[in-house]
Design a protein around this nucleic acid. Structure first.
Length: 134
DNA sequence: GAATTGACCTGAT
DNA sequence: AATCAGGCCAATT
């Protein structure tokens, strides 16, 4: 087999599928998409996959995928403008309010139906995350 | 065919 | 808490 195989491209399909599941007005990080895709997928692969969208960029909401810091990693594609059009709000630091627009992940049933993995719980509320176990 | 960069993330200092 | 460095897989030159 050569360097380029069809299996590697299989990541792209999954990444596109998961990205299409991001609801309108919400955003997800590359790491989240990679985690949902699983199977050794990494955030960088997601970035390259979205970059390889090509003409499919019109059918896949790639603009809803941002980096971990909540900033726009792209440039010249008007991602920020597109997100603003979606209703996403930004702060003074040019970053998306993750606490408001962060996507919680796909439904567990949907993930299982498609062979994906649900997004693990993310600890982002230090004030409330004290002791809600009991 | 090898080396470098990349629409990144996590961990350590 | 912020900053530095390493790592991961794939595409490109």
């Amino acid at each position: 087999m050569s360097t380029t195989l069809r299996d590697e491209r299989d990541y792209f399909e999954r990444i596109y599928t998961v990205t299409c599941q991001v609801p309108h007005g919400k955003v997800a990080t590359y790491g989240d998409i990679a985690t949902i895709v699983g199977d050794g997928c990494d955030a960088r692969i997601v970035g390259h996959a979205l970059g390889a969208l090509g003409s499919r960029a019109d059918t896949v909401p790639w603009q809803r995928v941002i980096n971990r810091t909540g900033g726009i990693s792209t440039s010249g594609h008007g991602q920020r403008e597109a997100l603003e059009a979606e209703g996403v709000t930004f702060d003074e630091r040019e970053q998306v309010r993750m606490d408001t627009h962060h996507w919680t992940g796909p439904s567990e049933d949907w993930a299982r139906a498609h062979g994906f993995q649900p997004l693990p719980p993310r600890a982002g509320k230090p004030a409330d995350a004290q002791m809600r176990l009991f």
